Amino acid sequence: MTLVSEDRDSGRAAARRSGATAVAKAGGPGRPPLRHRIITRSLLAVAAVYFLVPVYWLVVSATKNTEGLFGTFGFWFADPRPLEYLGDLLAYEDGIYVRWFANSLLYAGAGAVASTLLSAAAGYALAKFPFPGRETVFNVFLAGVLIPGTALALPLYLLFSEIGLANTYWAVLVPSVVSPFGVYLCRIYAAAAVPDSLLEAARIDGAGEARIFFRLVLRLMTPALVTVFLFQFVHIWNNFFLPLVMLSDSDLYPLQLGLTTWTGYADRQPVLYQYTVGGAFLSVLPLMVLMGVLQRYWRTGLTEGSVK
């Protein structure tokens, strides 16, 4: 019996050792096989190169003058003087680029904030307040996601012309406030992340609906709101067609429309090539900073432990 027990124990130990060896070769418990990880990281590396190479080219080109843009290797520096060239860009035509930059910040910042709040309110109402026709209203918002913005630009221009708001800041700001995708995302997120029991507890404690929304719901929906804000900010910042249709005064132009205008005159004024490249480089900096600052709010589990 003793010998049988010893043989059985030694067999179990050998099985454990072989299992541990197999797990180690696989990369640890719960980890995918090594070949899958290699393939995944290789694809991610290729994607990173694909997206970062244009940014690198933009950084290098922003340090060159017009002759350097066309006469030197595009992916390496040649007599870099970025501060001098960017200073010339900012001083061109009494600082028209600075005005375009400020206009873009106004359009994108104010439009994204207003759109986020409106989307949060609409999504929360559609998720937590039953009323007749709720699903119909939600389906209308879903249909709005499928309509491209370019298809609405001309009708919006005719409408704003009738009320005298064409060629004003409002002509770009007001259409930017509406985001069907933001409403859809906030409705889905509010239904999952805002517990009904927590809302009932707040109402029993005497909190009004406005206080519940601003003090409780907005905090619980922070990841969704950050997503909506970033999507809408980037969309407005890069929007070209709506300002092209709505605006005729160059002082009201956003960056994208202003830089495109410069490229139309670059054949007669070659220095505009350099200014356009430098302006494009500066235009991506706010998006990079915003993404770096707000990405920490993309986390889950905000309501964990709030309801027992």
Results as ranks from 00 to 15, higher is better:
Pro32Gln: 03
Phe51Val: 12
Leu52Val: 07
Ile38Gln: 07
Leu43Lys: 05
Ala45Ser: 04
Val55Leu: 15
Tyr50Gly: 14
His36Phe: 15
Phe51Ala: 09
Asp79Ala: 06
Ala45Leu: 02
Asp79Gln: 08
Pro54Phe: 00
Thr63Asn: 10
Val59Met: 10
Val53Ser: 05
Arg31Asn: 15
Arg41Met: 09
Val59Thr: 07
Leu58Cys: 09
Ser61Ala: 11
Val49Gln: 11
Ser61Asn: 01
Val53Asp: 10
Arg35Asn: 03
Gly27Ala: 07
Ala48Ile: 08
Val60Gln: 00
Asn65Thr: 01
Gly30Phe: 02
Asp79Val: 01
Gly71Ser: 11
Ala62Pro: 00
Thr40Phe: 06
Ala45Asn: 06
Ser42Arg: 05
Val49Cys: 12
Arg41Cys: 09
Trp57Leu: 15
Arg31Pro: 13
Val46Leu: 10
Thr63Ser: 11
Tyr56His: 02
Asp79Cys: 04
Val59Ile: 14
Asn65Asp: 08
Val59Asp: 07
Arg31Leu: 13
Tyr50Met: 13
Ala48Pro: 08
Gly74Ser: 09
Gly68Glu: 01
Thr40Trp: 03
Val49Glu: 10
Gly74Val: 02
Leu43Thr: 13
Leu69Val: 02
Leu43His: 04
Ala47Thr: 07
Pro33His: 06
Ala45Asp: 05
Gly71Asp: 03
Pro80Ala: 11
Leu69Met: 02
Phe73Thr: 11
Pro29His: 15
Ile39Trp: 04
Val60Tyr: 04
Val60Ile: 10
Ser42Asn: 02
Phe73Leu: 12
Asn65Pro: 05
Gly71Arg: 13
Val46Ser: 01
Phe70Gly: 04
His36Asn: 04
Arg41Ala: 08
Val46His: 08
Gly30Val: 08
Ser42Ile: 06
Gly27Asp: 06
Pro80Asp: 11
Leu43Ser: 07
Phe51Glu: 05
Val55Gln: 10
Thr66Gly: 05
Phe73Cys: 07
Ile39Thr: 03
Arg41Lys: 14
Arg37Tyr: 03
Phe75Lys: 10
Leu58Asp: 04
Gly28Ile: 10
Ser42Gly: 00
Trp57Ala: 12
Val60Ser: 01
Arg37Met: 14
Leu43Asp: 11
Val59Gly: 00
Tyr50Trp: 09
Ser42Leu: 03
Val55Ala: 13
Pro29Ser: 14
Val46Pro: 00
Pro54His: 12
Phe75Cys: 12
Leu52Gly: 01
Leu44Tyr: 09
Leu34His: 09
Thr40Leu: 06
Ser42Cys: 05
Thr40Ser: 15
Arg37Trp: 05
Ala78His: 04
Ala47His: 06
Val46Tyr: 11
Gly71Tyr: 07
Gly27Lys: 03
Trp76Tyr: 14
Ile39Pro: 00
Gly28His: 05
Val49Ala: 11
Pro54Tyr: 05
Ala48Gln: 13
Leu43Met: 09
Ala45Lys: 06
His36Trp: 15
Asn65Tyr: 12
Leu52Met: 04
Ala45Gly: 02
Tyr50Val: 12
Trp76Arg: 09
Ile38Asn: 00
Thr40Asp: 11
Arg31Ile: 11
Ala62Ser: 00
Asn65Gln: 07
Pro29Ile: 13
Ala78Pro: 01
Pro33Val: 05
Ile38Ser: 07
Asp79His: 08
Lys64Ala: 07
Thr72Glu: 13
Arg31Tyr: 13
Ala78Gly: 01
Leu34Thr: 15
Pro33Thr: 02
Pro29Val: 14
Leu43Pro: 08
Arg37Pro: 03
Leu58Gly: 01
Gly71Trp: 11
Val49Leu: 14
Leu43Asn: 10
